[in-house]
């Protein structure tokens, strides 16, 4: 009977000391939004080890080009032209192919196209701020954008977000679902940011800092930043009944 077959538990537990703490008072918004009771753990079931799939046919030709996907014909967004590229892998170093990545960011002046953002920097009429792509068979991805500006935000008396791109990642399982942020190598605002500092381990913060890759940069066109993303790994092995792995 198809519905009674047991399913092996298989995703590595999340290292919750490595992730930011839910309650991080330096980031004031977390104070009333952090659960206070212990999380309840149980072995992965199919509810956790399955997840939605999005095909390459979802992606339009400009979806991964934020300089053009909101621009008027013949126009493009203002700012430092940047390509972000990297690989999505799991904790075992296996590529994670065919998964949806979604990106959003402020424009080159640090302003979001959102009615809640009233920062005095101007909107760019040719920049929307969203993009998406699906990883290739080897887990690689790339998108073109402009480098977002830093922006001030109401937290402490003078807090600024470093330049960052928000990235949402689907894995192959709902248990791998992740949203994170990408920062830019050398930005002096990174160590000052209360949101960055919700992460305790400097090695974990370093994983969110994209590196300038001059060799991959296109002369007279754009700088390339390299940003690999690691999702939870799983314990599937040849000794389990799913020989093809995942």
């Amino acid at each position: 009977m198809k519905n009674s077959r047991p399913q092996a538990a298989n995703y590595f537990p999340r290292d919750r000391a490595w992730h930011p703490q839910a309650y991080a008072p330096g980031y004031k918004s977390s104070v009333l939004r952090a659960p206070q009771r212990p999380l309840i753990a149980f072995a992965n079931t199919l509810s956790e080890t399955t997840g939605p799939a999005f095909g390459h046919d979802l992606i339009g030709p400009l979806d991964n080009d934020l300089t053009l996907n909101f621009a008027q014909p013949g126009m493009s967004a203002i700012g430092e032209r940047v390509v972000v590229q990297g690989r999505v892998m799991d904790e075992r170093g296996q590529p994670v192919p065919n998964v949806l990545l979604e990106f959003w960011q402020a424009n080159a002046g640090g302003r979001y196209r959102h009615k809640k953002d009233n920062y005095l920097a101007p909107l760019d009429p040719n920049f929307g701020g969203c993009g998406r792509t699906v990883t290739g068979d080897d887990g690689t991805y790339a998108f073109r954008t402009v480098r977002p500006g830093p922006y001030p935000w109401p937290n402490g008396p003078n807090d600024w977000r470093p330049a960052h791109i928000h990235i949402s990642v689907f894995g192959h399982a709902f248990a791998q679902r992740l949203i994170t942020q990408m920062y830019f190598e050398g930005d002096p605002l990174i160590p000052r940011c209360p949101i960055v500092r919700t992460i305790n381990d400097p090695a974990a913060i370093d994983m969110l800092v994209a590196r300038l890759d001059m060799d991959a940069s296109a002369p007279m066109d754009s700088l390339t930043y390299r940003f690999d993303i690691i999702l939870r790994g799983s314990r599937s092995t040849l000794f389990e009944n799913r020989l093809e792995g995942n």
């Binding site: 980031y27 977390s30 992740l178 919700t198 992460i199 974990a204 994983m207 999702l231 790994g233």
Partner: peptide, 12 residues
């Protein structure tokens, strides 16, 4: 294992 999971950050 060679890697740690990318740490999460708020969706904002």
């Amino acid at each position: 294992y060679p890697f740690k999971e990318s740490p999460s950050q708020t969706a904002g």
